[in-house]
Design a protein around this nucleic acid. Structure first.
Lengths: 133, 133
DNA sequence: TCAGTGTACTAGTACGCATGGTACACTTTG
DNA sequence: CAAAGTGTACCATGCGTACTAGTACACTGA
């Protein structure tokens, strides 16, 4: 599978599934039209309940990351209009604010903070490049 | 008070108190040696339970943001050694990763993403400048 | 017809958050 | 010494969410 799930973490399992799929799509591991495992398949693979996987799939469909075809399965959706774009941009900005406050308490200078930020993005891009080779 | 609390939000109230105090310290609204309201005072002011405020204060003390003197009160701590520095840096990096994934799904280019980031920091610095005048 | 799909229920367990109340050891003040 | 104010430690309760488990339904394709 393209991701892992750890029930001991604080973030809910269904959220980890959502994040995992979104990351796989962002990296290009999953592309438009690719079929995802059925809720029962994925539940068996990761030893989860099918309801938990279904909850994740519903959230992913709400965000237009996947498309559901009743009776057939779920597929990676084509990039298009993004729902709730403004709210999500707002939430991103708020998260950045909290990050900057935390950086302050970790005694990071503005330069160090920006560097950590760029470093995190570069590492991600390296992974993406490898996966897409 | 230096912050607000909204019990309707998803983030726990005690966490909002923690974030609020940390932000006030980061901005310079609270400085080394300043006294914080007692748990019962703050609880009354914000119509919370004293246990909720106490939980927030304990977390703040664990992070060395404040110092507790039994029988006297709580005070803003002097900047010093930061506990759990490595773990918190790790968590920051992980948050940045998730932000970058979300940015991808919001169809933000790398430049737009970085710009949003810088913009968020600049706005914060403006507020800080105003408060510290 | 039948197997596989997502979906919708119900029921139960577990955990964290928040409130409310009481009590204790400590410090400062009168 | 007494009183008031401090953080802290309990216990009990209600509430919402997460997760599991099981069952059932409507739909699709072979």
């Amino acid at each position: 599978m393209w991701f892992r799930v750890d029930p001991r973490l604080a973030t809910p399992v269904y959220q980890q599934v959502v994040d995992g799929v979104k990351e796989a799509v962002a990296k290009g591991l999953l592309r438009y039209g690719d079929r995802l495992p059925s809720v029962r398949e994925l539940a068996t693979m990761m030893t989860l309940n099918h309801n938990t996987v279904a909850k994740a799939y519903q959230e992913l469909e709400r965000e237009r990351v996947i498309e559901v075809v009743r009776g057939r399965g779920t597929y990676v959706a084509q990039p298009g209009v993004v729902p709730d774009r403004e709210e999500r941009l707002e939430k991103m900005a708020e998260t950045m604010r909290l990050l900057w406050v935390e950086a302050h308490h970790l005694q990071l200078s503005e330069d160090e903070f920006v560097k950590l930020f760029q470093q995190s993005m570069q590492e991600w891009n390296r992974e993406r490049g490898r996966d897409n080779a």
